[in-house]
């Protein structure tokens, strides 16, 4: 048995240790696991390091989707209607993926003009527009309220 004060000390000590551990883990995990979002216009303006993992969002440009010979690789362009960027993706595209649809891709810049995606997000129904994409379109001055 021990005095309440001593016990409180243990409790506070334990709490602090646990919290400290959690904070360390969070800082460590934040260092390289935050993924920033860019619009094609932002990418055109500011060059980025190639190894940085990023997200790019916009509309799939009409007429840009090309299937490669291997049946798995797809090339398309993502546009915010003022700038666009070429994207390569190997894998099965989400069933909602199509031209003119708002999508977000995650991956790496191969060169300032081409992006290699390892993930393509196009969930939800056909009226859905990822908010980042809507924002990017608004900033590029191409947003039409009728889209909503």
């Amino acid at each position: 048995m021990m005095a309440p004060k001593r016990r409180r000390l243990y409790l506070v000590g334990g709490g602090m240790t646990s919290l400290g551990l959690a904070v360390c883990l969070v800082i460590f995990a934040f260092q390289d696991n935050l993924v920033f979002f860019y619009s094609p216009s932002e990418l055109a303006k500011q060059p980025l390091a190639a190894e940085q993992r990023i997200r790019v969002g916009g509309l799939v440009q009409e007429g840009s989707v090309v299937s490669e010979g291997d049946g798995l690789t797809t090339r398309f362009r993502i546009t915010d209607l003022s700038e666009s960027i070429a994207v390569t993706y190997t894998g099965i595209l989400p069933s909602l993926f199509r031209e003119g649809q708002g999508v977000i891709v995650q991956g790496y810049l191969q060169s300032p003009e081409s992006f290699v995606a390892d993930e393509v997000l196009a969930k939800h129904d056909e009226n859905y527009m990822p908010p980042e994409v809507a924002e990017a379109l608004k900033q590029s001055g191409q947003w039409k309220e009728s889209r909503d």
Binding site: A29, N33, V35, R55
Partner: peptide, 16 residues
């Protein structure tokens, strides 16, 4: 605009 994905949660969660 950022997103916090599975790598963050895995790094933090497994040790806890």
């Amino acid at each position: 605009k950022i997103s916090v994905g599975p790598p963050y949660f895995n790094t933090v969660f497994i040790p806890l």
